[in-house]
């Protein structure tokens, strides 16, 4: 496994991304964060914590969106994906929604998220924040508005993001797929 970002670099990157959000959304009165389950959830919580600590924004709304039932590859992949919990306790009607996910690859998860979020109202606009943007691998016209690190990768490589809450370490890695 090759390391792309270490714990310290992730910390700096998260601070920068949070700062960029504040630049664009000021007091977050009409802005909500939505972490894409499962791997975007912790990322979104981290961003929320930074907004609270560094910018004294105590009232940032955070929801979690599971997109399993909205994927377009149901019955196309060999392994079935297990669903996670969706927890959005607010309506996104006329709000600015920030999707937060760890890795942007083909763009299909985000496409599914764009459909799934419609169940909770019609947002004013939607932006996308990712920690890792895998360039040149997109299947759909979807690009991030906020990105931590751009990486160029081959199809047989996998980008893995680890979070201290789940994996006991912060880090972003390249892994060769064995198949």
């Amino acid at each position: 496994m090759k390391i792309i970002l270490g714990a310290k670099e992730i910390g700096i990157t998260l601070e920068r991304l949070a700062c960029q959000l504040v630049e664009n959304h000021n007091d977050f009165k009409d802005t909500v964060l939505v972490g894409i389950q499962p791997r975007g959830a912790i990322f979104a919580e981290r961003i929320k914590t930074i907004l609270e600590l560094n910018y004294e924004l105590d009232d940032v709304k955070l929801g979690y969106l599971d997109i399993t039932f909205f994927r377009d590859d149901f019955r196309r992949r060999d392994k079935q994906i297990e669903a996670s919990q969706t927890q959005i306790d607010f309506l996104v009607e006329d709000k600015n929604v920030i999707f937060i996910d760890d890795v942007l690859h083909s763009g299909r998860s985000i496409r599914a998220a764009l459909t799934a979020i419609q169940s909770f109202g019609r947002p004013n606009n939607i932006e996308l924040m990712v920690l890792v943007d895998r360039r040149f691998s997109r299947s759909l016209p979807i690009q991030p508005d906020y990105k931590g690190r751009k990486v160029d990768s081959y199809d047989n490589e996998k980008v893995i993001v680890k979070w201290i809450e789940q994996d006991e370490i912060d880090g972003v890695y390249f892994e060769q797929k064995n198949d």
Binding site: T86, Q118, S119
Partner: peptide, 19 residues
């Protein structure tokens, strides 16, 4: 556990998924 997820879905304002 799958039904738990669908129970959340059927209590949404829009109670439908495209699976």
């Amino acid at each position: 556990s799958t039904a738990d997820n669908f129970k959340e879905v059927i209590n949404r304002p829009i109670k439908k998924v495209p699976s």
